[in-house]
């Protein structure tokens, strides 16, 4: 065993990998931003009175729920340029990162729409009625009364969704993105597969710590935003 496994490799690899977190963060950040935006529209569609909008939004969510990330990733990577070519647009030379962002935006939008829908559903309808009854406009009612309460309900799910997105993002190396995982695989390839285990463990440590940080941040946020829930928490 000693011959094959060398713990020091883990510590040697970490400083080489860490700069590539920049790519990982950029992909995750953009996907979260765009995905939340589209997720909001999907959620609005799901809560709307239009049966067509509801069916479409729910169908989209089911499809995303049933599609492995890696399949979606390749479908976007190969499919989008092929479709674009039919319209005479050449997308073969654009950055891989863009395909990754598109993929995870599609996926995160579906997840976000469920997070938004369920947290909205958790807020009593009476809160809205009371807000408009005292003369707030519907928009003011949503912004000042519904949204702050729904946010608190949504926070734990939001944290979990972000951790999930970060982890699914680890698959982006399969279409050639050089993020932490991509860099790790490059190192392994240049080592002719020696000490792969140590490098994978280094990767696992990075992701584990990131997830713990996200978890911690969200639990702090939750405490911070839980205005008016004091007695509920203490009981």
């Amino acid at each position: 065993m000693e011959k094959y496994f060398d713990v020091s490799y883990i510590w040697q690899t970490l400083p080489i990998l860490l700069p590539f977190l920049k790519v990982t963060f950029m992909i995750a950040g953009l996907s979260i931003l765009l995905g939340s935006f589209f997720g909001l529209f999907l959620a609005i569609a799901k809560l709307s009175n239009s049966k067509i909008a509801r069916t479409l939004a729910n169908g989209y969510t089911t499809i995303m729920r049933c599609t492995p990330s890696i399949v979606l990733l390749f479908l976007v990577y190969y499919g989008v340029p092929a479709v674009a070519e039919n319209f005479g647009i050449n997308l073969h030379d654009i950055d891989t990162a863009i395909f990754v962002v598109v993929t995870f935006t599609l996926q995160f939008a579906a997840i976000m729409s469920e997070v938004i829908r369920s947290s909205y559903g958790a807020i009593d309808k009476g809160q809205y009625e009371a807000a408009v009854s005292i003369g707030l406009t519907p928009f003011q009612a949503y912004r000042r009364i519904i949204f702050p309460q729904a946010l608190v309900v949504a926070l734990p799910n939001l944290g979990n969704s972000m951790i999930a997105l970060l982890q699914e993002g680890a698959l982006a190396y399969t279409i050639g993105l050089i993020d932490v995982v991509g860099k790790a695989n490059l190192i392994i390839a240049s080592n002719i597969n020696a000490h792969a285990l140590e490098i994978f463990i280094a990767l696992a440590i990075i992701y584990w710590i990131l997830s713990l940080i996200i978890e911690k941040v969200f639990s702090i946020l939750e405490k911070f935003f839980s205005k008016g829930k004091k007695t509920l928490e203490s009981t």
């Binding site: 496994f5 982890q167 680890a170 698959l171 792969a196 696992a204 992701y207 997830s211």
Partner: peptide, 23 residues
């Protein structure tokens, strides 16, 4: 639980696939 929740499955696969043969 924290480890599994905190790491991507693909990396768990990498680790198992490269460590189990050694063991």
């Amino acid at each position: 639980v924290s480890f599994v929740r905190g790491t991507p499955i693909i990396i768990q696969i990498f680790i198992v696939y490269s460590s189990v043969p050694l063991l």
